[in-house]
Amino acid sequence: MLDELVNLIADLKEKEAVEAAKKLLDDGADPIRVLERCRMATEIVGKRFEEDIYFIPDMLFSGEILEQISQLAKAKIHRDVDDESYAGKVVIGTVEGDLHDIGKNIVAFLLEANNFKTYDLGVDVSAQKFVDAIREVQPDVVGMSGLLTIAFGAMSNTISVIKQAGLRDKVRIMIGGAPTNEDVARRVGADAYAKDAQQGVELARQWSAVK
């Protein structure tokens, strides 16, 4: 039944998945194990996204299903689940002056799903806010998103402020968003460009493993 739950979520069978989870929990299944299955399902979803079987709507829909199931499971847990065995830490945000967040949210969601501690600073994030977050969180990776041309200047400024703060060699920086590309990454002083959310997760994985 628990294994079937993984497939129901991964195949985006909303009603069946939520019902199965409800039944499992009502029958006394360990909520922690239900949450584990959610994570396994997300891995399958991520893999299908990588293989161009799934696309952004599938990711968002799987997120909706997972959210409902984890609410159900968490309601049955009376202690805090704080998993220390995360894959890495990522600070992410849309750079100053830019208010777009759909892409950034998908990356954050997929990072979370892949066991990264993700600190989402939101949109219109100033260089100083990035610096403060890097100091506080000490992430492996910083992700910057931008959908407007003003983001080029903002990214390059943010990266130089990070440099001035003496933090540049403590983090790896990736950028993403429609007008960006490898060339932009190089010119603004980032370490890499992520073409999509899955590539962002791959980069975060590589970089966190090295550290």
Partner: peptide, 8 residues
């Protein structure tokens, strides 16, 4: 013509 190139 990529706007990134036009900007940078």
């Amino acid at each position: 013509v990529p706007v990134s190139l036009l900007c940078l």
